[in-house]
Design a protein around this nucleic acid. Structure first.
Length: 424
RNA sequence: GGAGGGGUGGCAGAGUGGUCGAAUGCACUGGUCUUGAAAACCAGCGUACCGCAAGGUACCGGGGGUUCGAAUCCCUCCCCCUCCGCCA
């Protein structure tokens, strides 16, 4: 959610942000301004009437105590009319308030000035690339063939038991999962507080981080208890402080967690979702930060470096994309994506997305801090990023490190976690 | 799942229909006193919204209702505690 005051005072800035993001019209801005004016008008009216009702009620109380029953009855008769008017204004105020809120939720975050203006993925800026793309004088197989050959992942039985996108990891495949989770968490826990969050979240939490209402179809839903299996640890971690006032001295607060992530991925299909490329359930280590508003962009850079360090340690060729205004997430003010080169598929795969939400999520969730110097609570800035999502890392580890005999050399950082230097 | 008891300001804890946004204590902040500190005393001390301001409105777990008037009565949902049942 955006700051109403900014919309009121600098609507052109919001209009420009909408255009940059590829919105065809900027009328929502005007609708917000109109609804806001209406709402304030109704609220003022309602409150004035309410004040009258209260005042009269007090008079009635006094008269009753003095035994002036008749005069009291006279006032009581008057109250009915006031109350009726009050109800009408209250209804109007509530209605415009709802309209306003819905409109506000329809406005995306304002991109940071460093974000390139662009239409779609083609306009994202590759700002850094690192590592060697493997070359081989033998045919490089895609991970699903390697995984099957080595008996690491059983897609078919996963389909039988749960459905497409729910693989079984078997033997060294399962162990590799465990090793990566452990490795990622060990690295993250050096700078972030390790958390084991609930794996189901309620409606309020889903609303807090913005999964509801617009991304509803992406989550699974347990109807009987109205709970959602987490689509990402971002949701429980960011909601950890929902509705709270933190103390400035505690900022930045840095949390990390490993969770499975469940996503319906409705509408996805085709060759690009083969194997591990897109799953309904996958593991991820997530980083979340709550920062002072002046330091969120610095925090984004360090968080980004934290994730990149993992890729470097794993010896994978990776690149960093600065997402353009048109391809960036709705809630984000600035977003980096990290991609790794898949030798078996000859394309880049996204393995991490790191974002600064500025006060956009914090406002909707009401996460604030009390300034050390005193004064009113102010909104924190929230950030999150994956470090990292497992499946595509597994895919690339297999593909990029395959040998002519189809055995897999494991990167050195994983040797102690795996207990072996290679999979064969 | 069944029965019962509870949810009040940072914490503790009064308040069961009428100036209650809410006593009191603790904590915290400022001041007086003091060489300094403690103690004592005095003052302050929630959040949001409306308003140029004065001021007003809302919030006593959430939502709804009764009433001229609700922290207080009713309904409903959530959470916590105790006992029983079940279970890892």
């Amino acid at each position: 959610m955006l700051d109403l005051r900014i919309i009121r005072e600098d609507p052109d800035r919001i209009r420009q942000a909408l255009r940059d993001r590829g919105f065809t019209h900027t009328t929502p801005v005007d609708e917000v301004i109109q609804a806001d004016a209406q709402r304030r008008h109704f609220v003022t009216q309602q409150q004035a009437l309410r004040a009258q009702v209260k005042q009269t009620a007090r008079s009635i109380g006094t008269l009753m105590r003095q035994g002036k029953r008749q005069e009291a009855d006279q006032l009581i008769a008057d109250q009915a009319r006031l109350k009726q008017n009050g109800k009408e204004f209250a209804a109007k105020a509530a209605e415009t308030d709802e309209t306003l809120r819905a409109l506000l939720l329809s406005l995306p975050n304002v991109p940071h000035e460093s974000v390139p203006v662009g239409r779609d993925a083609a306009d994202n800026a590759v700002v850094h690339a690192q590592g060697e793309m493997p070359e081989a004088d033998f045919e490089l197989l895609p991970h699903w063939e390697l995984a099957e050959h080595l008996g690491l992942i059983d897609f078919a039985r996963g389909s039988k038991v749960a459905g497409a996108g729910f693989p079984f990891y078997v033997g060294m495949g399962a162990r590799l999962q465990r090793a990566l989770i452990q490795f990622f968490l060990d690295q993250a826990a050096r700078f972030y507080t390790e958390i084991q969050p609930p794996l189901f979240i309620n409606e309020d939490s889903a609303r807090g981080t913005g999964q509801l209402p617009d991304k509803e179809g992406q989550m699974y839903h347990v109807r009987i208890d109205n709970l959602y299996p987490v689509p990402t640890a971002e949701v429980p971690l960011t909601n950890y402080y929902r509705g709270e006032i933190l103390s400035e001295a505690d900022l930045p607060i840095k949390l990390c967690a490993h969770t499975p992530c469940w996503r319906r991925e409705a509408g996805s299909y085709g060759a690009h979702v083969r194997g591990l490329n897109r799953l309904h359930q996958f593991d991820k280590v997530e980083l979340v930060q709550f920062t002072h508003p002046d330091r969120s962009y610095d925090a984004l850079e360090t968080m980004r470096a934290d994730a990149e360090n993992l890729l470097t340690l794993l010896g994978l060729p990776w690149r960093r994309l600065l997402m353009c205004t048109g391809d960036m997430g709705f809630n984000q003010a600035k977003q980096y994506d990290l991609e790794v080169w898949s030798a078996g598929q000859q394309r880049w795969l996204e393995v991490s997305s790191l974002s600064n939400f500025t006060s956009y999520q914090a406002r909707r969730m009401s996460i604030r801090y009390r300034p050390a110097a005193g004064g009113k609570p102010r909104l924190v800035h929230t950030l999150n990023g994956s470090a990292l999502a497992l499946p595509r890392i597994v895919a690339v580890l297999l593909e990029n490190n395959q040998r002519p005999d189809r055995s897999i050399a494991l990167p050195e950082v994983l040797h102690s976690y795996m207990g072996i230097p290679e999979i064969r």
